[in-house]
Write a protein that binds this DNA or RNA. Structure first.
Lengths: 144, 144
DNA sequence: GAATATTTTAGACTTAGTCTAAATCTAAAA
DNA sequence: TTTTAGATTTAGACTAAGTCTAAAATATTC
């Protein structure tokens, strides 16, 4: 599975500042996870990130990867993307955008924000507020 | 987890006709699965459907539930909804609509079609055609 | 430094979903 | 009717993403 990210790379603010600004206590493990995760815009799974971190000299457990990704998601640093039941993708670009998923190739491609639908508060179910809007357009290769 | 479905109930076309029209060969198991699934509009998981079918006197295996749901989805009779990584929901209403998901209550609520975004073919990645558009708006209960 | 709280860890555990290979069913040919 | 080939169903083994647990490590407060 490849990913195609057309957005600009993450601005290189020190990850420690990034974490602190989001109310996340910095630890050794969180620093190396964040450095690996935010080194570029990417769609990555927990196990891919685990491999990547430990290939970069880290020594981080599976449980910590899951805990940390959950924490980062909760704090708005990453976005969870649910393409299918079998895996969660984490998007290191948490800004407002959505995705095309090519079912033929497995590519996950960023969608420009202008294509995002408009939702009015009044359209939401009574007594609720919007938290996130997730749009996934499944595409397939055009028949030749 | 409850579901809130505001759409009209499925029209009561005989399920056999429904299956045949979608190019699905009718078998005993497929008939009872379809009867259970399409008895009303619902968001249901494979294991819930398995229970329901076998409580209704059916004798259908887990593998057949999965195979059949996959077949129905492929033929456009049901829609798969991916809310989180842990479970796939099957929507017995396959018509064009989308969903609100209340993270506080677990409610999955239908969204009227008018809220669906417009996508132009020219906006899609080169060489691809749209297959499905999945929109899930996560909402939470308004603070009191 | 002692006591307490937070974080990390290995590895057991859960479970949604897939796979396999045998058994059963169906339709059509002979 | 019997044969045959292909499609379907099945039990149960299997896979793997993600969670849980209880202990160890680390940080903070008293």
């Amino acid at each position: 599975m490849t990913t195609n990210l057309h957005n600009a790379p993450h601005k290189k603010k020190p990850v420690e500042q990034m974490l602190t600004e989001h109310g996340i206590f910095v630890t050794t493990q969180r620093r190396i996870i964040a450095e690996t995760l935010f080194s570029r815009n990417q769609h990555i799974t927990a196990d891919q990130l685990l491999d990547l971190v430990n290939k970069n000299g880290g020594r981080v457990s599976k449980a910590t990867i899951y805990n940390t990704l959950g924490l980062f998601a909760e704090k708005g640093l990453v976005r969870e993307i649910h393409i299918n039941a079998s895996k969660t993708f984490y998007d290191s670009n948490a800004s407002r955008h959505h995705h095309f998923f090519n079912v033929d190739t497995g590519d996950l491609i960023d969608m420009k924000e202008r294509l995002v639908p408009l939702f009015l508060q009044s359209d939401l179910p009574d007594g609720t507020v919007m938290e996130t809007a997730d749009v996934v357009i499944r595409v397939r290769n055009q028949a030749p």
